[in-house]
Nucleic acid binder design. Structure first.
Lengths: 337, 337
DNA sequence: TTGATATTTGAAAGCGCTTTCAATAAACAA
DNA sequence: TTGTTTATTGAAAGCGCTTTCAAATATCAA
């Protein structure tokens, strides 16, 4: 019947001939209400097509039923998988995720976090990013926090990181096992913690195999396709021989693959290629990319589940996520030319 | 000094020795306030580290400063570009986007929209999806609406669509111009409006060139990589000859490219391939994919800008977005075998 | 000066809910 | 029956802000 000018709880109460408190109790199941009244109220709700005003509920309850999620780029193929995991874990909990992007820029991130805190999010998830630990710690005093991609020990903080070093170690060792000795490494962005860890894994694998580290085989690269292209070109200019490439992430591996294609270098026949992340698209590269699988979706999901626990006042759960090498077709045994 | 237990506007007022109204006026610039008081209030705000409670503001103002965005899959490479556009357009307007996913499922979408309406979003953007027009129209009575991927004429509704038919027509004509006569079409999901329009463009191009439509060359495909793989396999089983493939979107084109690779069919030497969308990754396929560029980012951005206008009470702006063929390396002239 | 007009301020009433507290009604034991 | 205990209910006070309205003060013309 009614429509415009949304109906309020008071109207429902009046229509049903009960007090607002009673309507509220029925809505929230906060107390027993006689069947007679319940029926009248439910009829009124239906008749008026009443829907509670979430903003008002939030204010009264002092909770926003919102969790803030700081990502770097909402369109990133890697992080958007995590967002999906967060979304899935939060579905039907009453909490809605509020996604904001920091654009790999500390100032932006700080601003976004402030924005989220102002909106009184009940919890916060920070996916990697550039925020200094102190800011995170400070923020954690106002709101339960889950942070990925780093270790941060503090009350009301849950951090969730995978072992990048081990992943890189495995990948490199795999290439070595295939007979490769001259393995180039696209090392990601200088100073990025993930990049550092992956380089360390690469070096340890070489060490393990008694292969000398050759810095002419290592080149920095942006963590995107363009970075991969540029890195390969740089490598080729150096005229160092290499029979395999281990890229610090799949996007740069994809760029590398294209650059090799452009030079007429066959993958994997002439150069083997291994990535890191296992993006959804990596399965559909030509050839499908052998890579270290980072469970992005699970990371998001786990982060959200942990946050839910913390928002419930429970301690953060103990959980660990592991990386694994997924062997596809972009790397093969080295064959003496 | 103070920290825990967030400080309120009343506390600021007390500390500054003014009334809450005055503080509010300073915060919002709603009225002139004497310099003396302004200074005292600003000092108090700084001293107490006061930040307004957005929930309370929202309730009092009757606006949530939030816009709902319904997408289908937050990790979709295509739609996430649009989300990015929305995010960019909304940045620094005070509005925050609330992203929800419908998963290409009408029931889910209906539920999500209800959720957003309950949260009292000030505006709503629906990116394509399966919602029936009636529901959209009904929703538009409660909140300004922007919808992409369809035409919907109604007050407080802005619809934004690109010409899929024309795009497909251009792509197909391009292939014909290259000398191809047997052009297969991966037609997307049966019944999907975009799929229908693109098929129509394909047919019209054939018509224009006087090429008879051959239904053995057309095969349905999911709009993802797997769909492309399956479609090519199906096509190959049919044993119909073809020298080019026009895929209804880039993801299925990518799948197609992999399936061809698996069968040892070279792209573009033996089969030319054209997609639709121009996903960010399509530039890095091997070979880079020739495709019809759909300005996903612009679509999102434009949608958000239009919504801002509407939320301001202004009429929806008139705007049109165009598609264009971007020629890369996955298609080449047909050479008599 | 004085009266009229324009400015700056504060009191108080919401915004639409939740929740405490006390009153009323129902159920029980003695 | 009557006094207790327990289960339902409603009144009212918030939640933290905005905004109307009227009072208080300042400004101006005469």
């Amino acid at each position: 019947m009614n429509d415009r000018a949304t109906t309020t709880l008071d109207q429902v109460a009046r229509q049903a001939g009960v007090s607002p408190s009673t309507v509220s109790r029925i809505l929230n199941g906060t107390a027993k209400v006689s069947d007679a009244k319940r029926a009248r109220v439910e009829a009124a709700i239906a008749a008026l097509n009443y829907r509670p005003n979430v903003m008002a509920q939030n204010l009264a309850r002092g909770r926003s039923m919102t969790v803030g999620v700081v990502t770097q780029d909402i369109a990133s193929p890697f992080y958007s998988e995590s967002l999906k995991g967060i979304e899935a874990a939060l579905a039907d909990t009453g909490y809605a995720p509020l996604f904001v992007s920091g654009h790999w820029n500390e100032a932006d991130e700080i601003e976004r976090v402030a924005l989220l805190v102002d909106r009184r999010v009940d919890g916060l998830i920070v996916l990697t990013g550039m925020l200094p630990d102190e800011i995170l710690l400070e923020t954690a005093e106002r709101v339960p926090l889950v942070v990925t991609g780093r270790q941060l020990a503090a009350p009301r903080v849950f951090s969730l990181d995978i072992d990048h070093e081990a992943g890189a170690h495995t990948a490199t060792l795999y290439l070595i096992g295939l007979g490769h000795r001259r393995i180039a490494h696209l090392a990601g962005v200088q100073g990025h913690p993930d990049a550092r860890a992956r380089l360390a894994g690469y070096r340890r694998a070489l060490d393990d195999a008694g292969i000398a580290y050759d810095e002419t085989l290592v080149v920095d690269a942006q963590f995107n396709e363009e970075g991969g292209v540029a890195a390969i070109e740089q490598l080729l200019e150096r005229r160092t021989a290499f029979t395999a490439v281990f890229a610090a992430n799949d996007q740069s591996a994809t760029g590398a693959r294209l650059a090799l294609y452009r030079r007429g270098i066959a993958v994997p026949e002439q150069v083997s290629l291994v990535g890191f992340d296992d993006l959804p698209g990596s399965l559909y590269c030509t050839p499908p990319l052998t890579t270290v699988r980072q469970p992005a979706y699970q990371i998001g999901r786990t982060a959200a589940l942990a946050l839910l626990e913390m928002m419930d006042g429970k301690p953060a759960p103990e959980l660990s996520l592991s990386v694994e090498l997924v062997v596809r077709e972009s790397a093969c045994a080295y064959s003496q030319p």
